[in-house]
Nucleic acid binder design. Structure first.
Lengths: 288, 288
DNA sequence: TTCTTAGGGTGAGTTTTTCTCAACCAATTT
DNA sequence: AAATTGGTTGAGAAAAACTCACCCTAAGAA
């Protein structure tokens, strides 16, 4: 018969993925981040889907979006579907000839923590090819193509991540600045080095140390922790140090901690992996 | 930190869908048909995926493709993932305000069988909006956006489809031609009307009737069964009639069956639905 | 109040992806 | 040898997806 076949198509898969991410993460911006696109792209995907369905999936409110009742009802089905898809994609990736391990980490963690440990990992698994991607937010290992992730995260009981070290912060500086700093108040005349993504660190520590930070204190902001760290080594000011990241500098005497007070951020440096790589991660951690 | 976020993307979802369809249906052309695209598009999707994976998923052979071992191992995971996705999409469709029933049928079935029954269906379900799409091949109801399908299919035991009527075929013609046809051999001087998609019908019937169709018999081919039927009504030749489709013409006397021999094609007119519409279909069938 | 911030929405324009089309093969089958 | 089946190819076209720059709203801060 060979009639023209205008097979009606289902909704675009990418729009479904955007919906699932936005619904799960509770916001378009977060979905955008997970999917590596701009929020505008998510807006458009959701609109496409709502038009296709003929019903709103999200309620737009000024401070964000809320799932409608129907949207909420639908979410679990899509979440499990995409979880299955993610698992299948991971299996697909396994086919590749040389085994590959793709690690996602915070830029600072990648540079200051991971880089010194990667050689050992390579030595232990010479047949593996390791690659590292710096990310602002921890990836969803079920969905994305990463095998390991190393991030500062709240060590919730729900997850099977490995706590590498609880996050402790305290001021550090170049050795020659240390003698002038006996109490928290001695920090005031110095420049405080601040990392953009960890801008609350000083507040956390100040509260713990009982230091009412005066408003006039000079600060210098950096977009990468490693940059701030470099400045601290050069004596440009006081950095709030994360114990796990600056240990080599303390041990080598490049930095010193002039004040004894440490504060816990409530986060921990956590290693997570997909199930396939659990064993490799476990053996890695036992050496730590 | 705001580092440029080149989040590595997974394989394109559409390529995965093409892979799943091709693997399940055992061929690129069939996958192309199910997805409503050309075979070339499937070729390209599969290539994209094979490049992404770095390993072949299909073995190319002259008469088609075969899944590689790895491809075969991967298929079930993708099939279940897309089944779940399909179910979720069906649920999504339910949100639409007015309930809609989308029926897929063979063009001939849509025109000759369904059209006379649709008014009753609309009357029974006045709140529903019915739409019909003509398709050459039965759709996969788990994946595509159809709710009902009516096709001639082999009534396998595996499926939950409803057998509406077993397919019986026999020659029919305009009343004025009938008197000249007493035995199968009297068909020889006439033009045989043939539908392109059912070109074997005459062979099936001839074999059953013990008629060795001479090679010189004139035939006229039509791309739609309804066209061939119209010609038969006009006395242009002999059509091989499908009982379920030409019954109204026989009852109205527009066509007659000059010969008593009927042949079974082994197919049946089958109604399938998604689970949500099972009840509606059952009640429809009890009226038949 | 007026500012500021957080989160979205928009539409134009661009980039990427996907698709079609029209050959072209290579192994069967007739 | 010719037709058939099923896949492949590359160019060009169409559709989808994305970015960018800017707008909007509500809520909290000053």
């Amino acid at each position: 018969m060979a009639v023209s076949p205008p097979r009606p198509k289902g909704p675009p898969l990418n729009a479904l993925r955007a919906f699932e991410a936005a619904a799960r993460l509770g916001g378009f911006s977060r979905a955008a981040e997970e999917l590596g696109v701009t929020p505008g792209a998510i807006t458009q995907h959701i609109k496409t889907l709502e038009d296709w369905v003929g019903a709103p999936l999200f309620e737009r409110r000024s401070q964000g979006v809320r799932l409608t009742l129907e949207g909420a009802r639908l979410r679990p089905a899509f979440t499990t579907a995409f979880d299955k898809m993610g698992a299948a994609v991971h299996a697909l990736k396994e086919l590749s000839r040389t085994p590959r391990v793709h690690i996602a980490a915070l830029p600072s963690v990648a540079q200051l923590w991971l880089s010194s440990r990667l050689p050992r990992l390579r030595a232990e698994h010479p047949q593996c090819q390791f690659s590292v991607t710096a990310l602002e937010q921890p990836p969803n290992l079920l969905r994305e193509v990463f095998d390991w992730s190393v991030f500062f995260e709240r060590p919730e009981s729900d997850s099977k991540g490995i706590v590498l070290e609880h996050d402790e912060i305290f001021p550090v500086c170049a050795p020659h600045l240390a003698p002038s700093i006996k109490t928290a108040h001695d920090l005031t005349p110095h420049t405080l080095l601040v990392d953009d993504t960890w801008s609350e660190d000083w507040d956390i520590w100040a509260k713990e140390a009982g230091w009412a930070r005066p408003t006039g204190v000079k600060t210098a902001r950096f977009s990468l922790y490693a940059l701030a760290l470099e400045e601290a080594r050069n004596g440009a000011g006081i950095l709030i140090g994360h114990a796990s990241l600056i240990r080599p500098d303390l041990e080598a005497g490049r930095l010193v901690a002039p004040l004894p007070m440490q504060a816990a951020t409530g986060l921990a440096l956590m290693l997570r992996t997909t199930p396939q790589f659990q064993a490799m991660a476990d053996s890695f951690v036992t050496f730590e």
